[in-house]
């Protein structure tokens, strides 16, 4: 029976993923050939082996990162799980100052998943990787029984090369350093929440999901020796990232509310849901800590880049053995900016 199935073309309109598509047989080969090869095509993937073999970089140090993507819904305003997975891993590598080189992708697909959606996600991954110039050089797919996964999970890994002499690390913030944010916050989280079941509201806000390595390259070129560290404020938002830095570096951070760019629609959505934009996820923003001497040239370079037009100096690293992140509010008062307690749940209170 299954032999007939193998001979037929994949139905990319109405077809669905079946267990055979992950069984290692011809169905799997067909799935890869029909969907992933064309979407992700590059010479390394084209080698067609169980691994990709790439040349060693001539200098620098290797940066490597891995991440899993379980976003729900899979398609959201401004992106989808495929582009998000590519951007997310590129950004994790780029935050070390590295030039990202290669990605790997592994998909866990639930039986019954529409092939049309799978194709769309693969295309979107391919487009994101081509736009970033970082190829997906190796991949894997597995199919699990219906009910064992929420449609589709993606896990990506990537490697990159840190230029010689550049050392960025979360423990390098020092009192007096400046804190820089690359643009307006909360867009990704709000775009996701707007499409969640039971919360539905309509907004023009799109996810900011984007690869940041080009912006990073411009920052390194402009202020490399002055840079202490970079982080992308994803889950937990700016609040979580600043607290991580404060703890890792053993310092305090003071930010000024009025300097933080937030779109008015994001504020409105946060008011509606009872959440704080500082704790909402971003997928296309970064926070950099820079010594005061480099802050000016860093900001200028960021603002000259299309992804950093709204870059702003938002705060200063201070001495504080309690490692507090504090904010001067727009009212001139002070408050703590804390980690989110637990998951981000909309409040009615």
């Amino acid at each position: 029976m299954s032999r007939d199935l193998f001979r037929s073309r994949l139905d990319l309109v109405g077809g669905r993923v079946e267990m055979t598509h992950g069984a290692g047989g011809r169905a799997m080969a067909q799935l890869i050939e029909a969907i992933f090869q064309p979407a992700l095509a590059n010479d390394f993937l084209g080698q067609g082996n169980d691994q990709a073999v790439m040349p060693l970089p001539r200098s620098g140090r290797l940066a490597m990162s891995t991440d899993g993507y379980v976003v729900s819904p899979l398609f959201f305003p401004g992106g989808d799980i495929g582009s998000l997975a590519v951007h997310g891993t590129i950004n994790d590598i780029a935050m070390s100052g590295a030039v990202p080189l290669y990605l790997s992708v592994s998909l866990i697909i639930e039986e019954g998943f529409p092939l049309a959606d799978l194709d769309r996600i693969a295309q979107s991954m391919g487009a994101a990787s081509r736009a970033a110039g970082v190829p997906v050089v190796t991949g894997d797919t597995k199919v699990v029984e219906r009910g064992k996964a929420d449609g589709l999970f993606i896990s990506t890994a990537g490697v990159g090369v840190v230029p010689p002499g550049l050392v960025l690390s979360g423990d390098r913030a020092r009192p007096g350093d400046r804190v820089v944010l690359s643009g307006s916050i909360g867009d990704h989280g709000i775009a996701i929440l707007s499409s969640r079941e039971n919360l539905e509201f309509e907004t023009a806000i799109l996810s900011d999901s984007v690869a940041l390595h080009d912006l990073v390259a411009a920052m390194v070129a402009a202020a490399g020796p002055h840079l202490r560290l970079m982080r992308d404020p994803t889950r937990g938002g700016v609040a979580a990232t600043l607290n991580e830095i404060a703890h890792q570096s053993g310092v305090g951070i003071v930010i000024e509310e009025g300097t933080i760019p937030v779109k008015s629609q994001v504020i409105a959505a946060c008011d509606l849901l009872g959440i704080d934009p500082l704790t909402v996820a971003n997928e296309g923003k970064l926070i950099a800590v820079v010594d005061p001497a480099g802050a000016g040239s860093l900001l200028a370079a960021m603002r000259a880049h299309p992804l950093g037009g709204e870059a702003a100096l938002i705060g200063t690293v201070v001495e504080d053995d309690r490692h507090f992140v504090q904010m001067r509010t727009a009212f001139g008062g002070g408050r703590i900016v804390d980690w989110l307690a637990g998951e981000q749940l909309p409040r009615i209170c």
């Binding site: 509201f201 309509e202 008015s264 504020i267 959505a269 509606l272 009872g274 209170c349």
Partner: peptide, 27 residues
Amino acid sequence: MCLAIPAEVIDLLPDEMARVSLDGILK
């Protein structure tokens, strides 16, 4: 508990429902 926000009524719907906008966020 009483998180509530002002929004502008932009359309009246059947069954005592309405579309409201809060700075462009529609609900």
